[in-house]
Write a protein that binds this DNA or RNA. Structure first.
Lengths: 208, 208
DNA sequence: GTCTATACAGGGATAGAC
DNA sequence: GTCTATCCCTGTATAGAC
């Protein structure tokens, strides 16, 4: 068999992460062995340790990179406009970003418990930052009397669960295409916060 | 050490399932070993095979029993009234039932991929039956002009994701107690379907 | 019904040759 | 940079004593 010579760390490294992401998303971190990942990449198991200090770091890096890309992408959005616009921008972004990265999303939600406490804390912190962006929009809309949200924190969790849940059942060959799903979800999002466009009565008086 | 004598299968069997549920909810099916479960129960690993033919069946039984209890409990509800009432009854039930069974819920959502195809099909079928109950309520409300729901199937998935998501962050010692959370979520649920009580305009014309 | 003992496969990770 | 070989542990599951 022809065996590769020379340096390939700049190629093999990404291949290792890609294979790990695919396998972990499908079978779960604990169920995937380093030998499987190596087989997928086309190297021996021992060679993986040239690209990652251990299996835990491999998982952490996948989740960290995913969250960093998420934060970078969301930071590029303009969320400074009216809260209704910001909410729509955020929701559209969330749907698109997550549907485009089904594997990474799945891992980031399912494998949190397989992180060491330190690594978990880091990912949880990034996630909280992301959620806070949405909550800030809701707070602005509530303060402006445009949204009727009993509790902005709970609404944040509810909206993210609802939007992210999409990734668990969406299929490319499903009944509705992405544009339709996006439109329908946006309608539900707006209704859930009783977007001011619906001309509702006074917000409920609920303690923060 | 005093060693138990006589028959204990009626006691040890449930203890095995309880230990398995606790450990699998915490660490994941693939990460939990039969040795761990046995240690928790207080028997040797080999003894577990008196109560389950194998590890897969242990997982499947946990999920099957959970889903069967869910279907039995939901069947006892009266969902025949006005759709607004039925939706409220269903949502309250879903929240309470799921918060009371955090471990079983977590397992039923996280470990689907660790089921054999046959076992998966069985659980998926039960879940679809449950979801259909909610969708039926939404269809009734839409037909009666009480709910503004662009798509009942998507609204079903969105509502279930939102309500079930609660279990991932709810803590007994959190900021809000269960009654408050339930009330807030019900408000959001009603708003999301634009419950007719809000006196809205015509439903959007959207293809089924 | 539970035990000890064990079979056998596979796990993560490392050492040292090439 | 990748290989083979290997260490040592743990996995599921079974056999047979008590």
């Amino acid at each position: 068999m022809a065996r590769k010579t020379g340096s390939h760390s700049d190629i093999t490294g990404p291949k290792v992460r890609a294979a790990a992401q695919q396998l972990i998303a499908r079978d779960g971190f604990a169920a995937v062995s380093m030998r499987q990942i190596a087989r997928e990449v086309g190297v021996q198991a021992g060679a993986l340790y040239l690209y990652t200090p251990d299996k835990q770091t491999l998982l952490f890096d996948l989740m960290r990179v995913h969250m960093e890309e998420l934060m970078e992408a969301v930071a590029a959005l303009d969320l400074s406009g009216p809260p209704q616009d910001a909410l729509e921008t955020f929701a559209r972004f969330h749907i698109t970003f997550h549907l485009d990265r089904a594997e990474a999303v799945f891992i980031s939600y399912m494998e949190l418990r397989n992180l060491t406490p330190e690594n978990f804390a880091h990912i949880a912190d990034l996630r909280l930052q992301y959620e806070t962006l949405l909550e800030t929009i809701l707070k602005r809309g509530k303060a402006a009397g445009r949204f009727t949200v009993p509790d902005t924190k709970l609404a944040t969790m509810a909206l993210i669960a609802m939007l992210t849940g999409l990734t668990t059942w969406y299929r490319d060959d499903g009944r509705l295409d992405r544009a339709e799903i996006e439109r329908i979800y946006l309608t539900m999002v707006r209704q859930m916060v009783s977007d001011g466009a619906t001309e509702r009565v006074e917000p409920l008086a609920v303690p923060l």
